[in-house]
Design a binder for these strands. Structure first.
Lengths: 225, 225
DNA sequence: TTAAAAATATGATATTTGTCATGTTTTAAT
DNA sequence: ATTAAAACATGACAAATATCATATTTTTAA
């Protein structure tokens, strides 16, 4: 199995702050796992008991609302950590993690890394920084959800997918989501998401090919009110 | 000026994890400040450069949205810390803090406490725990904003104010907000908030006396769909 | 105290969004 | 290749929410 010390992916998350020795120890007890698109990594209510380092692929973090719809709270990319909060408290996860693409993730048991969190200040400071960043981002999402129209939020989602995950050579968004996932990201009914995407298409802001979406007029999307 | 070592308020936040020596040092450099209802403690975009420990009173953390409305993201109570994120990054605040009641807050400069964060593991772990808790709470707010109706959110806000801040002897909510603040908490137009409160009143779920609100049927509020 | 300003209240109406129904297209399994 | 299931699409309508107008009440300041 590949070694954490040599893994480039860790550069993008807090694990980069671990010492060589710490990494070597973790490398020996970590387990790697392939997750197919649509499969879950963990579910709401489950005890996670460790962190996942996303080596490849993208997943969604979502929460089931009272009315039976999933709300996607965050997308997690290659290089990100998953389940940091399990290191801190003992509670079960309040979110589900479900793969949006095929993924490869490494699991590091809490028992193996919890001491490092206590002893390695760089590591804990780094984690603090990431959580502070996440908090800020969450605040922004709250404001958007509360104050912006569904159309605006959907336009912003497209722009976000473009900037975060890029496009293929022929200009389609690398990450293609189902209409239902778009709706669950934006917090609307699936039909509404479909309708607005159709409207964007009609207005020439995007084009589609099956599930794939291509942004044709980025600035117009930014201007949506 | 009163001393942090003897201050009960710190029991409710991460400062409780500081040693006696650390507290004594901080006590000497902290500044106390009285903030009147409506006054701001800091504004969006401002560099905060320290933490506030709320000794008394309640304030709102809000963010101006593109359409010119304030969205209240969180209420901060006596015993809470304010501006923890300033300790971690160097960025300016993305939220404004404005007093909802008269307040007394103590300001601890970043320069005086930043070393403790590095050296006292209990303190940093505690801060991590609080931020993890905040993140979880934020996720819940996102789901509520995205999936629940304005009426539901307003009902939940009333229940939250009741459980969090309690009531006077005659049953009115201790924290009385303007209708505009209710709207900004819930993410709706002020008129909509007023209308729904009127409806609650008409249906006997609450009664009002000027700005004050009394919950008359708690269970009915819980049942709002 | 009194006048002005701010907050609350409510009607009328427009806009946004959700729901249900139904048809079409795409995908996946046999 | 064929068929069933899932995803996508769209119309018709209902419900929720926003906006604008205007009146009333409460608060604030002179």
């Amino acid at each position: 199995m590949s070694k954490c010390e040599q893994c480039i992916v860790k550069q993008f998350n807090s694990l980069k702050s671990l010492t060589h020795e710490e990494l070597a120890r973790i490398s020996n007890c970590k387990t790697s796992r392939i997750v197919k698109r649509g499969e879950s990594i963990f579910e709401e209510g489950e005890t996670v008991n460790g962190v996942y380092c996303v080596k490849d692929g993208i997943c969604k973090l979502s929460k089931l609302s009272a009315n039976g719809k999933d709300q996607i709270v965050k997308l997690v990319d290659k290089g990100d950590l998953l389940g940091q909060r399990s290191l801190i408290g003992d509670e079960s996860s309040n979110l589900s993690a479900i793969a949006l693409t095929d993924m490869e993730v490494c699991f590091i048991p809490k028992s193996e890394i919890i001491d490092d969190l206590q002893k390695n200040t760089n590591f804990s400071m780094d984690l603090l920084k990431e959580m502070a960043e996440d908090l800020k981002e969450s605040d922004n999402v709250i404001v958007d959800m509360a104050q912006k129209s569904v159309k605006q939020r959907l336009a912003e989602t497209l722009l976000y997918l473009d900037s975060q995950f890029g496009t293929t050579e022929d200009g389609y968004l690398n990450l293609s989501l189902s209409r239902e996932d778009y709706a669950n990201l934006v917090g609307t009914a699936t039909e509404s998401a479909i309708r607005i995407l159709s409207q964007f298409k009609k207005e020439g802001l995007i084009s589609t090919s099956g599930k794939q979406i291509k942004i044709k007029d980025l600035n117009a999307l930014k201007r949506i009110e």
